[in-house]
Structure formats: structure tokens, C-alpha cells
């Protein structure tokens, strides 16, 4: 009984953390990457830190929960139904790829984060092509893949450090 309450409280903290991170994310639109590749609106995907943390510290089910609740709440608070659609496709693709890679391969955390970032961008492009019915948006794909790799490295290193420094904290004993 007591353990369940602890898990619920910890998940709530993680969701709150993911929400704050996605708000910070929307403030830092990465403009220093833009001059090279002429596409703005690239986000770091900081909320992925909280999701990767949940995935490694708690498990697959919890990570899916945190990801979906964060998405719904951040769409209500900072976005609209369109942001929800974009985020949903990106989140589903990126989370499933991260879970599959974590289960089947011995890839490092940074590599998993990179693939997660890339798939998130691909998911958003797919939704954009359908909503706008403009195939040419697909031409941005290589640019977004590269930005996904760069952002994925950053997020991966941050998650690695977070996990490393909280290694000694045992929540459920």
C-alpha cells in the first residue's frame, strides 16, 4: 500500500518535471543551429530527459504514462489540438523506438536518446505532410534528422548525468 502511494507521488513529480521541461523547451527555440540549415522551430526536446529517466528508473509502462500525460497537459496549457496531434505522433514513434532499442540491443543511453529524437522529428513531419497535404515538407527530413542527432546527443548526455547523480537514491525498498 505504502509503496503504491510512493510510486504515484514519484510519477506525479516526473510528470510535473516533464511539463516544466517542455515549457522551458518552448522558450529556447534553437536559433543558433538555424543559420547553417535555414529551418527554424527546432526544439531540444528537453522533456525527453524526464521520459528517459522514467524509462530507466521505473519501467516501460510508467514511461508511456508520463509521456502521454505530459503531452495532454502541455497541449492544454501551451498548445492546441494541432500541437497535440504533432506531439502524439512524435511521442508514439520516439517512445516505441526507444523501448524496442532498449529491450533488444545493448545500445547506450545516448544512442537511444538520439534515435528517439530522430523518430520524434520524423513523426512530426509525417503529421505535417498529412495535415498540410504538401509533400514538399518531406524535403526538410534530412535537416530534421541532423538536428535530431544533435539534440539527441545533448538530451542523452543530460539524462545520463541525471541518472548517474541520482543512482544512490533508492525510492522503493
Amino acid at each position: 500500500m505504502k509503496k503504491e502511494i510512493k510510486i504515484i507521488a514519484f510519477l506525479a513529480i516526473l510528470i510535473a518535471l516533464a511539463l516544466v521541461l517542455s515549457y522551458v523547451d518552448s522558450l529556447i527555440v534553437v536559433s543558433f543551429v538555424v543559420p547553417i540549415i535555414r529551418l527554424p522551430g527546432i526544439k531540444l526536446g528537453l522533456a525527453n530527459i524526464a521520459i528517459i529517466y522514467t524509462l530507466y528508473k521505473m519501467g516501460i509502462k510508467e514511461a508511456i504514462l508520463v509521456s502521454l500525460v505530459r503531452l495532454v497537459l502541455s497541449s492544454i496549457l501551451f498548445g492546441s489540438i494541432t500541437t497535440f496531434l504533432y506531439g502524439l505522433c512524435g511521442a508514439i514513434l520516439s517512445l516505441s523506438v526507444m523501448i524496442i532499442l532498449k529491450k533488444l540491443t545493448s545500445f547506450s543511453l545516448v544512442a537511444i536518446s538520439i534515435f528517439g529524437s530522430i523518430m520524434h522529428n520524423i513523426g512530426q513531419i509525417i503529421v505535417a505532410i498529412f495535415i498540410m497535404s504538401t509533400k514538399e515538407i518531406g524535403l526538410y527530413l534530412p535537416v530534421l534528422v541532423i538536428s535530431g542527432i544533435i539534440c539527441g546527443i545533448a538530451v542523452g548526455i543530460l539524462s545520463y548525468l541525471t541518472l548517474k547523480y541520482t543512482k544512490n537514491i533508492t525510492l522503493f525498498n
Binding site: 540549415i37 545500445f107 547506450s108 544512442a111 538520439i114 530522430i118 527530413l141 534530412p142 535537416v143 534528422v145 541532423i146 542527432i149
Partner: peptide, 21 residues
């Protein structure tokens, strides 16, 4: 050495993207 495979895969993806651009 430990993460050889993933580094190779990611480098390949990076090169293909740059080529595509």
C-alpha cells in the same frame, strides 16, 4: 570500442542526411 556499432550507424545516418541535403 564498446559502442562501435551504434557510432557507425549514427555516423551513416548523418552522412546520408548531409548527402540528401
Amino acid at each position: 570500442k564498446k559502442h562501435k556499432i551504434e557510432i557507425i550507424i549514427i555516423t551513416c545516418i548523418l552522412l546520408v542526411s548531409i548527402l540528401a541535403i
